[in-house]
Simulated scan of single mutants.
Amino acid sequence: MENTALEKMSSNKTFEGELIKYKFKSTALGGLEAQFNLYLPPKSQNDKVPVLVYLAGLTCTEDNGAQKGSFLSVASTQGIALLFPDTSPRGAGIEGEDDDWDFGTGAGFYLNATKPKYAKHYNMLTHITVELPQVIKDAGIPIDFTRQSIFGHSMGGHGALTLYLSSSTKQYRSASAFAPISNPTKCPWGKKAFTGYLQGGMEEAQNQYDATHLIARFKEPVHILVDYGTGDQFYKQGQLLPENFLKAARDANYDEFQVRVRSQEGYDHSYYFISTFASDHIHFHANFLKS
């Protein structure tokens, strides 16, 4: 996969490390410009470091997690790099992609679209799992991509769980999620996205992009942590369905040491919730990334 070189857009020293924003011309996204943030902890000045990928939710960009997640301090002390991709292609110019907040721009759902209308540009799965690691390697940035884990929020929680559970190469050592869309073929957000992006609609989605279905037939050991808030409006509306994911995991004989789903009393869907449990998630992944 050929890409133009990374261009550094900004850099900020923080927690003795560096948060850098890059852009490049993305082949996976049909030649569009893509941006991402990368946090390099101070340990990266002397050694290659493991990386934790953060996938943000609907309407977000590469900036939300970096600016509001409260991840950087803990990542600095643990010696872990953080990669913050965008949530969709930008500027594809496809008719209708900007009509709704929960589909199109800002709502790529971390899949590879198969409907012809979207297939050229909406390939966030390839962008995240293949393209970004390659362009970062090619730039000589000191990250050890043999040690990767992934986490995310809401739509990004869906992405983290599905990319982890569908990875035939065992790309990620662990996965975690804040308020993930856990059973998207059973909720309005998922149905809208999958019927819009996928030629095979819900059947194609069930086989590849629904964490509840994936965990039910997964055969390998897993390391998964999920947090959701009981005060979350989208949980109450039936968009998240974490109980479905938990039941499927238990039915597949994954115990609480392999799949832990925690309900947090009174917390909502916001970054106040995420930042409260950010340290838990970084430390969870450190157990697997630093070994």
Score class of each variant (00 low, 15 high):
Gln264Cys: 13
Leu32Tyr: 08
Ile181Met: 00
Gln171Glu: 06
Glu203Gln: 06
His285Gly: 07
Gly238Thr: 14
Glu203Arg: 04
Asp255Glu: 13
Val259His: 00
Thr87Gly: 05
Thr105Lys: 02
Val226Tyr: 09
Leu125Trp: 14
Thr185Ser: 06
Gly96Glu: 15
Ser275His: 09
Thr129Phe: 03
Val222Thr: 03
Arg250Gly: 13
Ser166Gln: 03
Tyr271Glu: 04
Thr61Asn: 06
Ser26Glu: 01
Pro142Ser: 10
Ala5Asp: 08
Leu72His: 05
Lys115Ser: 10
Ala249Lys: 03
Gln206Ile: 05
Thr129Trp: 03
Gly17Trp: 06
Gly201Ala: 01
Leu198Ile: 12
Tyr122Gln: 01
Ser73Val: 15
Ile224Arg: 00
Gly266Ile: 07
Ile274Asn: 03
Lys219Ser: 07
Asn37Tyr: 02
Arg260Asp: 13
Asp63Pro: 08
Ser166Asp: 03
Asp232Arg: 09
Ala249Arg: 00
Phe36Val: 08
Gly156Leu: 12
Arg90Ala: 11
Ser11Pro: 13
Ile20Leu: 09
Thr14Glu: 14
Leu246Pro: 06
Ile20Ser: 04
Phe103Glu: 03
Leu52Trp: 08
Pro42His: 14
Leu165Ala: 11
Asn3Ser: 09
Gly17Ile: 03
Val222Arg: 00
Lys68Asn: 09
His283Tyr: 14
Pro133Arg: 12
Lys25His: 06
Gln134Asn: 10
Ile128Lys: 03
Gln148Leu: 11
Ser166Ile: 04
Tyr172Val: 05
Ile136Cys: 11
His281Phe: 08
Tyr267Leu: 15
Arg250His: 01
Leu214Ser: 12
Phe218Asn: 15
Asp138Tyr: 01
Phe218Thr: 13
Asp99Gln: 09
Lys23Gln: 15
His121Leu: 04
Leu6Thr: 06
Tyr235Gly: 11
Leu72Asn: 10
His269Val: 07
Glu256Lys: 12
Thr4Leu: 11
Asp255Gly: 06
Gln35Ala: 12
Val222Lys: 00
Tyr54Gln: 08
Ser270Leu: 13
Tyr209Lys: 00
Gln264Asp: 15
Thr114Ile: 01
Phe194Arg: 11
Leu246Gln: 14
Asn112Thr: 01
Tyr228Thr: 14
